[in-house]
Design a protein around this nucleic acid. Structure first.
Lengths: 343, 343
DNA sequence: TTTATTTACGCAAACGATTCCGTATTTGCA
DNA sequence: TGCAAATACGGAATCGTTTGCGTAAATAAA
């Protein structure tokens, strides 16, 4: 059911040459006469010859493809990352193979195994929320697989990393709320196992401290699946809303948490920011259409994807093993709406 | 810089067998004795042998990967489609390679060439808005490449297709507006070359007609790049808003057009639905948070992706050439907000 | 006991391309 | 004219795996 591709043999046969001559002619080797080259090139053109990349991969032990493992494709932040990855990969002649872990550790392990066995030349990984054991990634890394970690990283793995300044992002957001007169600021965050969660909460914590506001443990709620499960968000909101000292402002640390919290507010007839101000992470570009327009923290996702890919290709195409690794930290952006301004 | 993988030769050498015996033992051939099989299996396990998929591809002339060409990854509708594609592909042991055309014909041609030369086993394609000449796709199809068209299809290519009932989606939306008392209903649509545009406008047209409303050509604006370029949308809105008989309602036929129009309204201080009611296509799940909550047409994108992948794998794995093709038409959903209800 | 059949394995070709050698012919130089 | 060197090409191995074919040894049938 598959079509027969033209091979180097067909050209050789047509011209009464050997395959080695044809191969060399196509690669413009000095050993081949100008006339023969001309002939071969013309014939290749005529027969519409396309080199078989699989045969090349087998020979060169590289596939010119990179694997991407993220938790979810249908998510603004990650789809923008993939967009960035694809743009660089396209320019450099690499294919992008995407796999999603769906926040499952087990699935992440399988995805990675699958991609590695498919001989991708390198991997860009954003850890699943369930991942605490990293031996599967270490094993690959130790065997020499080029890996770049993006967004959800882990210090146990010594390789290039691309993140945003999560600490600063949330620090600034918290301070923005404080400056606008909010005093009881709560936070709904993702899993405590995630690097980003801790960096973000540290920013929250330090901003409170720097402004002489006390930190209250009950003001911080965790949603293990980061908003993928709506009931988790509702529950977290419930806890905050039923506190004797109800918070007057809220910071949410992911796209899904942000929209989840807003939905909960709306469905309960609560008003933002009157009943509770909100600043959330989001990579949607329609926050200005919200009621009220949202103040949000935006990550340069596309740039992150591009950076990660550039670093990965550096690793892949390096002649000598690389031992010095870079952690690239990009700046998030605080976009001011009215959800964080006192009514 | 790449790690050495264990091959069948290593096993053969370790056990003093030939590679053919090892290969056959691993594939559980009847020609191999039980003891030898046992030995080989154990040795393979011990050495952590993983078959080289590239060598297999070369031999079997199949790569167990499918290519996806869409215009834009960072778009709810398409990322949801990819999500659906990935879920089925994952189950069936296929890799998904994504490429984006960015609405460029030229880029689509290159993407397709690239993927085909990378010997994907099949393709899922959504046409770019610039694509009017289909010879590049026909050429692939004629040479036996399994192809499934999704969303933006074209009748010139005889293969499986997956779409939503665009006609009905817009017909119902238009009728909904009419029933709610709107009489001057405009439409902002994508490129006239796109199948979806014409199907949708036909629904619009017929609904007007069925309800004895006259169709006015100036009430229909086209944005060639479907909202990718914001100025295009603004211009279309401008034309509508400066008509002597300004429309009292608007239908937008894509995600980006919908949000683009809403942004334009908001930035001009116009109120939805007071100044103009709006129903738009969208695959975002946060429309209820809009001001006002949007009435929108949602497409079952994930299901479309899944269906397309199932059909494609059917084509790929079929023994005999398939000549009977299916056009699968899924139902869009009209989700009622308040942007379409008279104030 | 002889012949036929099965069992269990090895050899080598094949997939498509590259590349290390080897070599016949031509060219250059003395 | 004679010999070395350059030129231009072919043969065959290689990448990792599968598979058609051949065959020695063991077993079964005559």
């Amino acid at each position: 059911m598959k079509f027969e591709a033209v091979t180097i043999k067909d050209i050789a046969k047509a011209l009464g040459l050997s395959t080695s001559t044809v191969s060399r002619a196509l690669r413009d080797s000095y050993e081949i006469s100008a006339e023969t080259k001309q002939l071969v090139l013309e014939c290749a053109e005529k027969l519409n010859y396309k080199p078989n990349p699989i045969a090349l991969s087998l020979k060169e032990k590289r596939s010119r493809s990179i694997g991407v493992v993220i938790c979810e494709i249908a998510n603004n932040f990650f789809s923008q990352i993939i967009n960035g990855i694809e743009s660089i990969a396209y320019d450099k002649g690499y294919n992008v193979i995407v796999a999603q872990s769906r926040e499952s550790y087990e699935r992440e392990v399988i995805d990675l195994q699958f991609l590695a066995s498919r001989s991708v030349d390198g991997l860009i990984i954003s850890l699943s929320t369930e991942t605490t054991d990293l031996t599967h990634i270490k094993a690959l890394h130790d065997r020499g697989m080029p890996i770049v970690l993006i967004d959800r990283i882990n210090d146990e793995i010594d390789t290039h990393k691309v993140i945003v300044d999560n600490y600063k992002g949330v620090y600034d957001a918290t301070e923005h709320l404080i400056k606008n007169g909010f005093k009881r600021i709560a936070a709904i965050a993702g899993s405590e196992f995630l690097s980003i969660t801790n960096e973000r909460l540290a920013g929250y914590h330090d901003a409170l401290k720097a402004n002489n506001l006390s930190f209250s443990k009950e003001y911080v709620q965790h949603c293990f699946y980061g908003g993928m499960i709506f009931s988790e968000v509702e529950e977290a909101m419930n806890k905050l809303l039923t506190l004797k000292q109800r918070p007057d402002a809220l910071i949410t640390t992911s796209d899904k948490l942000t929209t989840g919290c807003l939905k909960t507010m709306k469905r309960r007839g609560l008003h933002v920011p009157k009943d509770m101000a909100i600043i959330g992470f989001s990579n949607s570009d329609i926050m200005e259409l919200f009621d009220p327009p949202l103040t949000y923290i935006r990550q340069p996702a596309e740039e992150m994807g591009r950076d990660a890919t550039e670093l990965l290709l550096q690793l892949i195409e390096s002649k000598r093993p690389i031992t010095e690794f870079e952690k690239r930290v990009l700046s998030p952006q605080l976009i001011i709406g009215s959800s964080s301004i006192k009514h």
